[in-house]
Amino acid sequence: MKEKTQMPDEQAIEAVIKRQFGSLSWTPDASADWDAFMSDFLAGAPLYPAKRPVKQQSVNAFMERLSGLEGTKLRSFHETVLGTEVRVFGNVAVALAGCEMVENETEVSRGVEMLLLVKDAGQWRIAGQAWDLESDEVKVPPHLSGVGAT
């Protein structure tokens, strides 16, 4: 299979995604990088977590909730990008990211995050993000799970 050549915008968006996931990792000895996490979002960007019923959340509220869990019942958290799919048109883009989360070094889950991005002053920023977790009924597609071609 011929490997897809990535364009600079796709590479920049994948870097944003990797920074997002990496910034949310912490251990008992090292905190998450909340400043890096916040810096990639546009002001007022809505988040839609997997929990149902659906409820919009601000980036600040999401960060406050997670940072409050850091070091308490959630002693460690690590999120890894498994695969991505990026579509760009001019200064707008959508990205899908398959991910794996490990909580307290033992609880593993996977999911897909979908991001709406806009480019402003040469920088890609997240305008909105929603995600869902893998279940017995809904599996992470192979191309986003690190198993198939990206």
Rank of each mutant, 00 (worst) to 15 (best):
Q6M: 15
M7P: 02
D9S: 07
E10R: 02
E10A: 05
A12I: 01
I13K: 02
E14L: 02
E14R: 08
V16Q: 07
I17Y: 05
K18E: 15
R19P: 00
Q20P: 00
G22W: 00
S23R: 07
S23N: 04
L24M: 15
W26E: 00
W26L: 05
D29V: 11
S31F: 07
S31N: 12
D35T: 10
M38N: 11
A45T: 04
P46T: 03
Y48N: 10
K55A: 15
Q56M: 12
Q57A: 05
V59G: 05
M63P: 01
L66C: 03
S67I: 06
L69D: 10
G71D: 04
K73E: 14
R75S: 13
S76T: 10
S76N: 02
E79A: 14
E79T: 10
T80E: 14
L82V: 09
G83M: 01
T84G: 10
E85L: 12
R87T: 15
V92N: 11
V102R: 13
V102E: 12
E103H: 12
N104H: 08
N104A: 09
E107K: 15
V108W: 02
G111Y: 06
E113I: 07
M114F: 04
L115I: 08
D120A: 13
D120H: 14
A121K: 12
Q123D: 06
Q123A: 14
E134Q: 13
V140W: 09
P142F: 06
G146M: 03
